[in-house]
Amino acid sequence: MRTTDLSRIDPSRHLLIAGPTASGKSSLAMAVAQVQGGIIVNADALQIWSCWRVLTARPDIKDEATAPHRLYGHVDPGCSYSVGDWLRDVEPLLNQRLIIAGGTGLYLSALTRGLAYVPPTPPEYRDESDRILARDDGLAQLVGELDERTRERIDTRNPVRVQRAWEVWRATGRGLSEWQADTPPPLVDETQSQRLVLQADRDWLADRIATRFAQMVQSGALAEARHMQPFWDPAQQWARAIGAPELMAHLAGKLDLETATERAIIATRQYAKSQRIWFRGRMRDWQAWPVGPQN
């Protein structure tokens, strides 16, 4: 099967394209849109930020003029944005044929399986959890205070997940897993969509990641970082763009550009690995779509 062979893609249904970073999701989405029509919708939590076009490999201006795109770069730095916000933004678009492409597994899982309502937590609980997490044994302490059911279900090595679960438990008295059990129907069920997961050889993908990031630096990623340097705060959501901390460290004189680039490439490869783990574990029922030089 060739990556660009669209004969197996059903034009009458929404198309969902998942895959690790640099695997070619945007290219496939563009090819489908040009041949079959449809609106390309972003499902990447890093590409929502208005401040990062080059660094997050958002579609360029030419691509956006060729086919309609939605939910790219539509959130300003300093705003908060959640998977629930993304679902609310997608819902009004569903009366048209959508080509939803991205690497954020949580977005795609919530779209196709439903998302439970979890109430927002007061900021004082975030402040308290930040103080605990800053300690040497902080993560272990937060994990130990979770309810048993939640502790068994979440990745207890992930500080972001643990912190969120702890704050919900403290603020509501109900465990995160209990809230998640009350899940409404999905926005897009299996009858309404075709679901693809791009699968690539690890070495081929690693080479693409390295080449692409070097091109990003030459094509404007460093300029984007320099523009955002006065506002830099690693705790902000927009600051989680892969490669941003390394470029900021270079601009601050802590790393030379070559070292910053090497470290950013390593971080991107690690991110791709975590994406593949998510897809293998939670999207086993999606259709495998091989990509790479042999396809």
Results as ranks from 00 to 15, higher is better:
His14Cys: 11
Val41Gly: 01
Ala165Glu: 00
Arg126Met: 11
Ala33Arg: 09
Asp130Gln: 10
Thr156Ser: 02
Leu46Trp: 07
Asp182Ile: 11
Val217Asp: 07
Arg263Met: 12
Arg240Lys: 14
Glu152Ile: 06
Met216His: 15
Met1Asp: 13
Thr156Pro: 05
Val197Asn: 10
Ala252Gly: 12
Ala264Glu: 06
Arg280Phe: 04
Thr268Phe: 10
Phe231His: 15
Gln275Thr: 15
Ser27Thr: 15
Thr259Asp: 14
Ala235Ile: 01
Thr191Trp: 09
Pro290Met: 03
Gly281Val: 01
Gln194Glu: 10
Leu187Gln: 11
Leu247Gly: 11
Val168Gln: 13
Arg88Pro: 00
Glu224Ser: 01
Leu46Ser: 04
Arg280His: 10
Cys51Val: 11
Thr150Ile: 04
Arg174Pro: 08
Glu152Tyr: 02
Leu205Ser: 09
Trp166Arg: 00
Thr172Ser: 14
Ala267Gly: 01
Arg149Leu: 04
Ala244Ile: 10
Ile277His: 13
Thr268Cys: 13
Ala239Arg: 13
Val291Tyr: 00
Gln294Gly: 08
Tyr271Cys: 06
Tyr107Glu: 03
Gly19Met: 04
Ala101Val: 01
Gln199Ala: 15
Gly281Arg: 15
Glu152Arg: 13
Ser109Lys: 09
Pro20Ser: 12
Ala134Cys: 00
Ala206Asp: 14
Ser177Cys: 12
Pro230Gly: 08
